[in-house]
């Protein structure tokens, strides 16, 4: 009789597992589309030098360069945060005569579609690495015989006015089955 009671008690214990940890305390985080979105950090590239859809030349082509700090003039310029190291002069990059263009060494216009040649004025080694494939993003096809390789230009990732790569929020940490003790516990 006692043996039977013990068996039933053991069976109930193992069935309900009152002291066990149970299956899991919380579910692993869902794989959100934001974690695998291939859009570059600055979003889609614009097609021309413009502010809120208006090409800069629309207003500026008939104007002479202002003699004052342009960040104090107008609503468009006040939003610009310029943290590009020692490069603090607008017309180092922007063309003072043709405002839809960038400016080369001698003031020659550089079109928006060739912005990498503007950045190459100062960032020669990076330009070389970018051309050869060691720097910058590539999308599409590694085998250009089978499809198009998209070479992303500088300003897709770097804000030209504040070019340092901005911090990102890390996607969730792993919760794989095998867990190592962290370094402090050794």
């Amino acid at each position: 009789m006692a043996a039977l009671a013990a068996c039933i008690a053991a069976a109930l214990y193992f069935w309900f597992d009152p002291l066990g940890a149970g299956e899991r305390t919380s579910e692993p985080p869902a794989v959100k589309p934001a974690y695998y979105d291939t859009t570059p950090v600055r979003g889609r590239l614009k097609t021309a030098l413009m502010t809120e859809g208006t090409p800069c030349g629309t207003c500026h082509d008939s104007m002479d360069p202002p003699a004052v700090d342009p960040s104090k003039r107008g609503t468009f310029h006040s939003q610009i945060v310029l943290r590009h190291g020692a490069n603090v002069r607008c017309f180092n990059c922007h063309n003072s005569g043709k405002r839809d263009f960038f400016s080369g060494f001698g003031g020659e216009p550089i079109p928006y579609s060739r912005v990498e040649t503007l950045c190459a004025k100062c960032h020669g080694p990076h330009y070389r690495d970018w051309q050869q494939g060691a720097h910058g993003r590539r999308n599409g096809y590694w085998n250009t015989a089978m499809g198009e390789r998209k070479t992303q230009v500088c300003i897709v990732c770097h804000d030209p006015h504040w070019p340092v790569f901005k911090p990102l929020r890390a996607a969730p940490a792993p919760r794989t089955l095998r867990v190592t003790a962290s370094a402090e516990e050794h």
Binding site: P28, A30, V31, Y35, Y36, H135, L168, A173, T176, L177
Partner: peptide
């Protein structure tokens, strides 16, 4: 250049049909 954002981890999971629960990465 790597900033440790773990986008690669989840792009891989999404592409390669790994188990979400239990987690395999």
């Amino acid at each position: 250049r790597c900033v440790g954002c773990r986008r690669c981890v989840y792009a891989c999971v999404n592409e390669n049909n790994q188990s979400r629960d239990p987690q395999i990465q």
